[in-house]
């Protein structure tokens, strides 16, 4: 029993076993959504209950956990979830990407490339990539079963016809292992290429919708596009105001009420590491 009187990582062992089975199935069929019996968690739907349940099920006493929210370790949500696991599992936590074994994330992939020893757990609001185009669940299940994805291409076609370009800036649909259409969760489209052939295991948990899916290590992940309108990752054309990076994804901050803005790295740990690098080199 931990400090708070809960089983290790909050969930009972039978639940963890059930979720692990779902995770195994998900890994066996990359990109395919597996239903699971989501439990009541001590925070509401929409706050990461799916991600937390996946993390809780795979967590072991030796794991080192990092939690980020929109790339930052220090937002309220990231702090809450990290503290939650400290209390119910007593595991070590970190803000340094390279030191973590499990990284739970809301809507970003860390800039630093992950390794085979790491697992990335995504929080997913809506696991069904076709939801806005086809609200009927029974129908989307058939479409996935038949790999009948013309509908999504129609959506992209419509964007180009109306706007001249594909308008999805986040949650940009991908084909996993050239078989299943998957929602990568609302990460910026900029992050999509990182998913392709990633060395780490990627797990996706949707608590409200009760679905788990996965991308095993070294799996092809391709963002949908047209031959004459190829996918291009987009970031603000600036350098980070703090560390000077011109390749990381930037947050735009309003600094005053006179229209002043600054662009800084969304990934706080990455920015920190870059800031410390010249000091380390100098030492």
């Amino acid at each position: 029993m931990t400090e708070a009187g809960y089983n290790f990582a909050y969930l009972d062992e039978a639940t963890k076993r059930m979720i692990r089975r779902a995770v195994l199935k998900a890994v066996a069929v990359p990109g395919h959504q597996i239903p699971f019996g989501a439990r009541e968690m001590p925070l509401p739907y929409g706050w990461g209950t799916g991600g937390i349940q996946v993390t809780a099920s795979i967590l072991g006493p030796q794991d080192v956990l990092k939690v980020i929210d929109q790339g930052a370790d220090d937002t309220t949500n990231a702090v809450s979830i990290r503290r939650f696991f400290t209390r119910v599992a007593g595991i070590a936590t970190t803000e340094t990407t390279g030191d973590a074994t499990i990284i739970q994330t809301r809507h970003r992939i860390p800039e630093k490339p992950l390794t085979e020893n790491q697992i990335l757990v995504y929080q997913v609001p809506q696991p069904e990539p076709l939801f806005k185009l086809e609200p009927r669940r029974a129908e989307t299940r058939r479409l996935h079963a038949l790999a009948d994805y013309g509908l999504m291409h129609v959506r992209l076609y419509e964007d180009i016809a109306r706007l001249g370009h594909i308008a999805k800036a986040y949650d940009y649909p991908v084909m996993v292992n050239e078989r299943y259409l998957m929602s990568p969760s609302p990460i910026p489209a900029f992050d999509n290429p990182k998913m392709h052939q990633m060395a780490a295991l990627q797990l996706f948990g949707a608590g409200r919708e009760k679905r788990i899916y996965a991308v095993p290590p070294y799996t092809p992940v391709r963002s949908l596009d047209f031959e004459d309108h190829p996918f291009r990752p987009i970031r603000a054309p600036h350098a980070c105001a703090i560390c000077g990076s011109t390749t990381s994804y930037l947050d735009e901050l309003v600094t005053d009420d006179a229209g002043g803005r600054a662009f800084i790295c969304s990934d706080t740990d990455y920015c920190q590491e870059r800031q410390e690098a010249p000091k380390a080199a100098a030492e």
Partner: peptide
């Protein structure tokens, strides 16, 4: 809710057409 062009192009896209200009 899909444009006329999208309606006509859908079956082509469902069968694998991937060039926006050609579909259009």
């Amino acid at each position: 809710g899909v444009s006329a062009g999208g309606n006509v192009g859908e079956r082509l896209m469902a069968l694998g057409a991937r060039h926006y200009g050609n579909i259009r």
